[in-house]
């Protein structure tokens, strides 16, 4: 594919490697938020941005089949599936314990339950897009599964970091009732859809897209840090964001055919 979307340029890292690393980072971040609530935003938020980076990387692969107009929709689908799986996963554990007298330790498995629910949901939606809707994208099912997983992990990651844990009561009281989950939905969604949406084109490079993905992950973490009024993580996130963003700008200016500071148009070769 070499048309408008681009994105089939050489990959720096294989997609599955990024997915596995992103998922592990996000899940570890959730456990840190649960067991060490005093550093939940500092470490949990940092690690949750791993999920948005992996999601952005998958967006790059699947959106390359389009012209660029569908990229935002893919991000929103990802976060829509993620929001449903997160709430379902968190509540399922609570209901299972109260209805079937299961041990309370099941609550520790909430990140795993959310992972499984999101993979199943993403797979079903991916199948539906192929069969009744008839989208002819070969990696559709696989990509929807990954996007759903990354959407769920980033929402639960940031919500757990904000609320200081992933227990049903903590999540419902700390992020759903006060509406912060809305910020998790839209901010993590932008962090997943924006990197490829911004960088697409025939000269797109994986390095620039990944740098921007990391910067977007960090700015999402910054928004949550500020919303939690956590000064240490706000400063840490904005510093890390600055370093990565500077690198992205430098790389972009290096890759451009020319950088001009004056209003002149290059001469057309006829």
């Amino acid at each position: 594919m070499s048309h408008g979307g681009g994105g089939h340029a050489a990959e720096l890292y294989p997609e599955n490697q990024v997915i596995v690393i992103g998922a592990i980072l996000a899940i570890v971040g959730m456990y840190i938020s649960q067991f060490f609530p005093q550093v939940s935003m500092l470490l949990g938020g940092l690690l949750a941005s791993g999920a948005t980076v992996a999601g952005a990387n998958t967006t790059r692969r699947v959106a390359a089949y389009g012209l660029g107009t569908g990229v935002p929709s893919i991000g929103m689908v990802s976060l829509g599936l993620g929001a449903i799986s997160t709430l379902a996963g968190v509540l399922l554990a609570g209901v299972a314990i109260s209805q079937f007298n299961l041990p309370k330790e099941l609550l520790y498995g909430i990140p795993i339950i959310v992972t499984v629910v999101s993979i199943v949901l993403g797979y079903i939606v991916g199948k539906l897009t192929v069969n009744p809707i008839g989208m002819k994208i070969p990696i559709m099912v696989e990509s929807m599964t990954k996007l759903s997983l990354m959407g769920a992990l980033s929402i639960l990651g940031f919500c757990a970091a904000y609320a200081g844990g992933f227990y049903p009561d903590t999540i419902i009281e700390g992020t759903v009732k006060n509406g912060v989950i809305g910020l998790a939905f839209i901010a993590a969604g932008m962090a997943i859809l924006h990197p490829f949406n911004a960088c697409l084109g025939p000269n797109e490079s994986h390095k620039r897209t990944l740098l921007l993905a990391i910067a977007c992950g960090f700015i999402t973490w910054f928004m949550f840090s500020i919303a939690k009024l956590d000064i240490v993580s706000s400063v840490a996130s904005i510093l890390l964001w600055g370093i990565v963003y500077r690198e992205f700008v430098k790389q972009s200016l290096k890759d451009a055919c020319s950088v001009l500071y004056t209003p002149e148009l290059p001469k057309k070769e006829m």
Binding site: G6, H194, P195, N197, A198, C199, L200, G201, P202, N203, E204, R208, T209, L212, A215, C216, Y245, F248, V249, S252, L253, D255, A256, C257, S258, V259, L260, Y261, T262, P263, P266
Partner: peptide, 22 residues
């Protein structure tokens, strides 16, 4: 800023579109 740089550089080499910093 990231979207301007990303979109312009994304087609800069092939079509000769410069990045206008001003």
């Amino acid at each position: 800023v990231s979207s301007y740089l990303g979109r312009i550089v994304g087609q800069s080499q092939n079509f000769g579109q410069p990045v206008y910093m001003d």
